[in-house]
Design a protein around this nucleic acid. Structure first.
Lengths: 212, 212
DNA sequence: TAGATTGTTAATCGATTAACAATC
DNA sequence: TAGATTGTTAATCGATTAACAATC
């Protein structure tokens, strides 16, 4: 078995990807771990360690080719393939995701939204049709769905998550304020708990005030 | 100087808070670190260590009083005070935040939104008025603003962040896909990078597929 | 008191940083 | 070749877990 790569490393990869993309836009051809470390405010050592989890992408005496490294990290993150997404919950947040056109650039395609409100039936949100929840099963049987984004009230989330897993969906992007109890061997879950994030901010606000 | 509490600990506090809130709703009066650890799937040791960073909230032989612990963690996270928020960028995500009524339960109040689009001028989003960006300065001078949520395109974010800091705002909840280069001594920043989160998910999808 | 469970110290584990030989 | 910079090993640092004495 391969050595497991820690989530701490994985969390940093998208940030590398973003900075490399910016460098590409600026026409930078190569960069050393040292220069990148100054830019990103991390240690050069960490950059080299992180990258070497996946292979040797650099060259001694030269540094890293920006385009090459960008592409490689893209592959590592699975951005070289298309991912279809359905959004469960067509409220404000669901619509925000549906409208967030940038996702498509990287091969993310939102193919449908689902909600329980009858008045939303048949509506479209930037070309994306809104279906009723009772159409979910049929839809999943007829379409290949890679990711389900849960943007619905927390009380319904666990039940829907179960249903989705039974319908063969193995990846959940969970915005509901609850922990989903799914089989980790079968399903990957990524949580976005906005209120947790906000509380972390207020903790730091209070701390800062106490210091000054 | 007090010993610094690591952000790793802080990140876990909102989750404790959430579970304790659920227990309260269920009418549970006391809980041991052991029982809580099973519920939350973390070690009892970690719970006790985390809490003891802030003081001894439990009692030997008894455990923790749920209500008391809930309130204490609320205070630690600054939830016992009100925080006013302005949202910069009245797009979908900004509106989603504005409509996310639950925030108000915990003392978060969104008092205004700002945008550049003239057609939004004077509109309201669930009682929250939308102002034009050129009204920002006046607004900040006449209102006490604790937090600015940035839900605008990344190209404008750094500039606006600078402006906000100059106007006396010391906390930024940043949804723009860029790192803000502000003085850390003066300003606290909490980033919510949705596409980073999505990439973490796709990494794990690809990994899982490779395993099976 | 006896049993339970905390608070806290000590041990372990993992992640980050430093150092340097390998090599372009 | 000489200089630069990686890949990688070793050292350090911090976070997590285990253990247990304190105590309710």
């Amino acid at each position: 078995m391969e050595k497991e790569i820690s989530q701490a490393v994985i969390r940093r990869m998208p940030r590398y990807y973003r900075y490399l993309g910016d460098l590409l836009d600026q026409g930078v051809e190569r960069i050393s771990s040292n220069d990148l470390s100054e830019l990103m405010k991390v240690t050069a050592s960490q950059i080299r360690q992180d990258l070497n989890n996946f292979g040797g992408f650099g060259q001694q005496g030269y540094g890293y080719n920006v385009q090459f490294l960008y592409d490689e990290i893209g592959k590592i993150l699975g951005l070289n393939q298309q991912h279809t997404i359905i959004v469960i919950g067509a409220g404000n947040l669901g619509q925000a995701l549906a409208n967030y056109a940038k996702f498509e650039k990287r091969g993310f395609v939102i193919i449908a939204m689902f909600d329980v409100k009858p008045e939303l039936k048949g509506k479209k949100c930037r070309d994306i049709p809104v279906y009723m929840m009772d159409e979910l099963e049929d839809f999943c049987k007829n379409h290949s769905v890679d990711i389900a984004a849960l943007t619905l009230p927390k009380d319904f989330a666990p039940e829907i998550a179960d249903k989705l897993v039974k319908l063969g969906i193995h990846a959940i992007w969970n915005f509901a304020h609850v922990d989903l109890d799914v089989d980790e061997k079968e399903v990957v879950v990524e949580n976005v708990h906005l209120s947790d994030s906000l509380m972390q901010l207020t903790y730091n606000i209070v701390k800062k005030k106490a210091q000054s």
